[in-house]
Computed example of a mutant assay.
Amino acid sequence: MLVTIIAGARPNFMKIAPIIHAIQKSKESGNNIDFRLIHTGQHYDKKMSGDFFEQLEIPEPHANLEAGGGSQAEQTAAIMIRFEKELQENPTDLVLVVGDVTSTMACAITAQKQHVKVAHIEAGIRSGDWTMPEEINRLVTDSITNYFFTTSDIANKNLKDSGVEDERIFFVGNTMIDTLLKQRPRFQKPAIWDELGLKEKEYFVMTLHRPANVDEEEKLKELMDEIIDNSNGLPLVFPVHPRTAKILSNLGVSHPRLHMVEPLGYLEFNYLVERAKAVVTDSGGITEETTVMGVPCMTLRDNTERPETMTLGTNKLLGTNPKAIKPAMEKLFADDWKTGSEIPLWDGKTAERIVEELLKLQN
């Protein structure tokens, strides 16, 4: 069985790394399974050098479709055209897509039109917010997927409610957590730790990237002011995209405690997260990692596709109203934040379960 694995953005590689390791291990044990790794090139990331793949202990992709740039429609078209050629030149038994980026949807559509079955890792997660491109990608991908690998009971229910039969749903856990647990002993102290004189549990980590937060300038300024004013004198470490940094600069947002730094590598970023007092973010993936590491997390969004990080984890959905920040901070500093509990099957063995199911499918 040859599995063609798709990755289009940096976080995708964190999700597929353990699957590659599990396939390699299964093949070494004599099972008929192998993989071909395709990078669509959706996101160009200068940090994705040989070192990046070395850190994750995976080979460089067999092919890079170099389909980055342009609008979402242009990107979707470029990925589909190039992936169609890839499938014609390198036939496969199954296309495996992860997450909810444009590449996930585009490659799923292309595979089905080439009569190749599709497996979706992280199937069934929903925010209910159709203004998010990722939600459209999830809905389209799951509408044409053959095999659904899920991270939670909530995702299972979403799929069943949409008419997916039980025998096509495989509740396996979260491959992002496989990577986190494997790499946790290898987290690396970034240079800024000493440069800023950071101390464990005495600083915040921030990430903001969603248009609803960073493109509405006055709202962004108000959010930043509220975070700075209510962070109890602690440093704020903000790995920031250059575009967001420019917006903040134009708005005159600056403070001696606000440290806007270059985006960090996976091992360095999670070193900071693990030791932070709390994380303020609008990212979905980070809420999963903070939950597993037991770090308080405040999410500046009106909805989340990962509700288990709130019901079982350390995440609290604050919404996008800046006035929600002060009471949340007061709760944090009163040591009144929820501790969270273990999430079923987020145990570092998800990829092994996925490969076991893939082997059964070929019998």
Rank of each mutant, 00 (worst) to 15 (best):
E305F: 01
T350K: 08
N250Q: 15
E122G: 08
H115E: 15
D229P: 00
A22D: 00
E167T: 11
V164G: 07
D142M: 08
K316R: 15
V118I: 11
D178G: 04
K15F: 07
G99K: 07
K27W: 11
Y203F: 10
N213G: 12
E216S: 10
I325E: 07
I5M: 13
F149R: 01
A111R: 02
L318N: 04
N232A: 13
K246H: 14
T141R: 08
N270T: 11
F53P: 06
K27G: 03
A9F: 03
G340P: 07
G8R: 01
S26D: 12
E356S: 14
F333Y: 12
E342C: 04
N250D: 15
D178S: 10
P296M: 03
N303H: 14
T350I: 06
T145V: 08
L65V: 06
E134Y: 00
P235Y: 01
K25L: 06
N230H: 15
T131Q: 14
K246A: 14
L258G: 04
R210N: 10
N363I: 12
K47V: 11
E28P: 00
L223W: 04
K25M: 09
R138P: 08
G124E: 08
L180C: 02
Q183H: 13
E305L: 07
P211E: 10
T150K: 06
L358C: 09
T110A: 14
E268I: 10
P296I: 01
V214R: 03
N31L: 03
F187I: 10
L208P: 02
I81D: 13
M329I: 04
N232I: 01
D194H: 00
E135H: 12
L87N: 03
Y203S: 01
R10I: 07
A276V: 05
I354W: 00
G319L: 04
I144C: 10
P344H: 03
T299F: 09
K182H: 15
T304F: 03
K219M: 11
R82E: 11
K360M: 10
L312M: 15
K85A: 14
Y271I: 03
F52A: 05
I81W: 03
A111E: 04
Q112G: 12
Q114T: 12
G348D: 09
T290D: 01
E135N: 10
I125V: 14
A67Q: 00
W346G: 09
I38W: 09
A245C: 05
D142S: 11
L236P: 02
G70A: 07
E86W: 06
P322M: 08
M132L: 15
T339Q: 15
G41T: 00
M105A: 13
A191I: 14
L96V: 11
A324F: 03
E308H: 02
A123L: 06
